[in-house]
């Protein structure tokens, strides 16, 4: 369904990632693991349209997205849960969710989406009128995921959803990610917590120094001793 084809993204003169190709099938859960600074966030931001790509292509069902303006990526069914959540902190929980369904097609189903998100995250229903910045870390992560779900995505991008959360909250968040994927939404997960990500994913990529160092089914990757050593300690 979704393909990244040999893309290069640079900050200034230095390429952050180059020759990176990955694939996410319809309804599939894929993950990208790798050390800090490998370019994971750059990759996921490029896929969301947050950062322009210099070479290569992003294809959704064969259509090239790389020339589209930033705000058109959402309309192609791509929604992001960015690193550090990046909520609209001064706005209410409800307004954050409403902005998730900003584009016209998602707006039409706003009521139903809001119900669904509140069913998945009951704590958000109690806090709809509260400012997003006043939520706890776990609640903010839930709201960031909820905001992305409001966009009715076909491909959900998650950047380090476990970052800064208590272990119990991390498990709850990953349960939700599993449920979302089970409902038919393709997921691309970027995670430093490789053990968790590899357990969940059907396909995995290892990103090192801006290049894909290995790819395959998680079980295959874990069978390679150096990957096991590097990522599972």
């Amino acid at each position: 369904m979704f393909e990244v084809e040999r893309i290069r993204v640079s900050y200034g003169a230095a390429p952050a990632i180059s020759e990176v190709s990955i694939r996410v099938g319809a309804g599939e859960l894929a993950c990208v693991v790798g050390p800090n600074g490998a370019g994971k966030t750059t990759l996921i931001n490029a896929i969301a349209g947050l950062h322009p790509i210099e070479a290569g292509a992003l294809r959704m069902d064969g259509r090239d997205l790389s020339r589209l303006p930033r705000h058109a990526f959402c309309g192609e069914g791509i929604a992001i849960v960015p690193e550090g959540r990046r909520l609209f902190a001064g706005m209410s929980v409800r307004e954050n969710l409403e902005l998730g369904s900003y584009r016209r097609a998602a707006r039409a189903r706003r009521g139903a989406s809001l119900e669904r998100v509140c069913d998945v995250f009951p704590v958000l229903r109690e806090r709809l009128e509260q400012a997003a910045g006043t939520l706890s870390g776990g609640e903010q992560q839930m709201l960031a995921i909820g905001r992305a779900l409001m966009a009715q995505p076909r491909l959900l991008l998650l950047d380090e959803p476990s970052l800064g959360l208590a272990p119990a909250v991390v498990l709850a968040v990953f349960d939700v990610i599993r449920e979302i994927n089970a409902s038919g939404v393709a997921v691309l997960l970027v995670e430093q917590n490789a053990a968790l990500a590899l357990e969940l994913a059907a396909r995995a990529y290892v990103l090192e120094e801006g290049r894909i160092a290995a790819e395959g089914r998680p079980a295959e990757l874990l069978a390679r001793p150096h990957i096991r050593r590097a990522y599972l300690g």
Binding site: G49, H71, C74, R86, F88, M91, R103
Partner: peptide
């Protein structure tokens, strides 16, 4: 209004607003 809320979202984080379809 939806447009007004989008405007406030731009003030807080324009790239993320764009990622959700706001024509910044």
């Amino acid at each position: 209004t939806y447009t007004g809320k989008a405007m406030r979202a731009i003030a807080e984080d324009a790239p993320i607003a764009a990622a959700f379809g706001v024509d910044v």
